[in-house]
Amino acid sequence: MILHTVNKSPATSSTLKECLFSASSGDQILLIEDGVYAATQAFSELLRDDLSYFVLQNDMAARGLNSSLISEQWQPVDYQGFVELTEKADSVCSWF
């Protein structure tokens, strides 16, 4: 299982799209930095249903995104949670 991190807004960059295209079933996606905007309701249709989705809550909070703006597929994690995801993954692939 690969952990993919994405740090760009899906509205201005194809980074998330390219990541979702390249991920294998069972992989995990973690949004960081400006990538966290992808967790809002407007982009939920981009998501595949065979991946797990995480979003860095420090970056959400920094941008004023609270849980009411986030679609339900996304599970918030803090930096410790980020590290835990990297521990469990076979490798980590960064999309920027």
Binding site: I2, S22, A23, S24, D90, S91, W95
Partner: peptide, 14 residues
């Protein structure tokens, strides 16, 4: 094939 390449390489520089 792209997904398989990512899956089979431990070291991926993107």
């Amino acid at each position: 094939e792209l997904q398989a390449l990512l899956k089979t390489h431990k070291q991926v520089f993107n």
